[in-house]
Design a binder for these strands. Sequence first.
DNA 1: CGTTACTTTGAATATAGTCAAGCAGTGTGG
DNA 2: CCACACTGCTTGACTATATTCAAAGTAACG
Lengths: 284, 284
Amino acid sequence: MQPATTHLTRPAFQHSVNRSGELWSSTHELCDLLRICLPQDLRDDHSRYQHVRFKAGQTVHLNNDALSNLFLVNCGFLKSSMTDDLDKELVLSFPMKGDLIGIDSIHRQHHQSQTVALSDCDIILIPYSSLQDLCKKSEQFGHTILQIMSRELVRERYMLGVQRSLSAEAKVGRFLCMMGERYAQLGYSSRRFNLRMSRNEIANYLGVAIETVSRILSVFHRLGVITVNQREIVIIDAGFLSNLVKLPSARDRIPKQAVLKSPIMINQKMPFPIYQQQPEFALS
Amino acid sequence: MQPATTHLTRPAFQHSVNRSGELWSSTHELCDLLRICLPQDLRDDHSRYQHVRFKAGQTVHLNNDALSNLFLVNCGFLKSSMTDDLDKELVLSFPMKGDLIGIDSIHRQHHQSQTVALSDCDIILIPYSSLQDLCKKSEQFGHTILQIMSRELVRERYMLGVQRSLSAEAKVGRFLCMMGERYAQLGYSSRRFNLRMSRNEIANYLGVAIETVSRILSVFHRLGVITVNQREIVIIDAGFLSNLVKLPSARDRIPKQAVLKSPIMINQKMPFPIYQQQPEFALS
DNA sequence: CGTTACTTTGAATATAGTCAAGCAGTGTGG
DNA sequence: CCACACTGCTTGACTATATTCAAAGTAACG
């Protein structure tokens, strides 16, 4: 499809740090970002965590980098990807505010993926050693970290399900809804937003060809369930998008019109809220 | 494809326990099974973990069960699956000796999947509370658990890559190799083994139709790279299977013979050892 | 021995991929 | 400011891969 790596510039760490206005966060702020309650036993923890800024296009970490920090997104939009057996890029996720980057690296103590900034970003560095300290200090925090990892597992598994059993149309529909939900969580509109990634990156993420994504967006537009203008999306019928199973085959569709001869298949079940705020997730 | 749930019998826990000969394992044995070194600070831990036996076809846990235990496979073969949006079964993994079942349930404190025994099994129950105790007692153990979860994430991600970017032929090829490697780890032959799961389960796991699996196995057999006899597989050319990208299209293939007009595409790179023993994984 | 479940194989079909061309927005340099 | 190239996106036509449907074969089970 596309080459695995374009030209990746390694982040100028020290540089960024010195210029970054020396912003540091407390453990409390960390927990807030992660959407977990500050455990009792960390009330008097005064650790500080450094912020680093990345410009759009800059690399946060590369595949195979030794694990020294995890990265917590404070603001901005990123893309995590790995390189598969065949040296093709494989987009894994689009981290944004509140997402923890790098937990896949704990296993071998080296990153198994790479992350680049799609927009200017502010990222908090969490040295892995600090994470271990926090786990040692607070039993509850340790539990929470397990939960976060477990959640990541469930999310990735959800994507696995999407890959395996959905039509390309359903994939794109759910992708748009998911993005809407995620923006909503950040306080933006879930109906009108700008995609931060290219069609290519979407296609890769969904495991379909770029032309397929393009075509499907056009069809959705024609059907009146969304509006597409470059990367600006307006979702008109979110229910349609998240429950779509498949559209009538192309031949049953009067070309260039929204008139359909055979019915559109829609799933009745409520979709699994994979990225929604999870109240039970916060520790009481 | 296939109905999500056939008829699942809940395990007769108490019953099994009473009949099971009351086998209990030590923390040390637990670590051995998990292929990690017993941490120093758990040397004098005398916790005991109960074994439970399951007959082929019995359910170990159901989706949405409250998390009380994790399950460590001592022997036997199982199948973990979830139910997707469209109520279809989605096979996630085929746990065997040494695999830890249920870490996806930590997130919501409820299982996000279900596991059934494909053969008679001996399973060690690890109450989640005990796991937390061990983490509290031993910092190193806590770290190791993180590693295990991280590893699971990487494995699942590998499958995601398989789903997205491989042809059906490559999927089946890699599946066979992977099974070989896993059997090898258990001390069996990596070349000759019995698949414990049905074609249906394989197809589901790989995200292809059952007929496709069947056809591809036949083609491999005809090409002389494997031998298939029901569920007994003999791998003749493992390199071929793990590096196959795609076979020549059907029309370039003289029917029913192993003669090919155009070349078979083979990947040069070494495959990622996703299930191989990882020496660096053991704690020093 | 008949019923059932699982598997294989063939033929037709559909979905999505590839190839190719054209369009639109962006940026560069004359 | 315009011409030019460049990149990303869209659209069409064709094709390949894999699915679906159908039928028949094989093993397993009571």
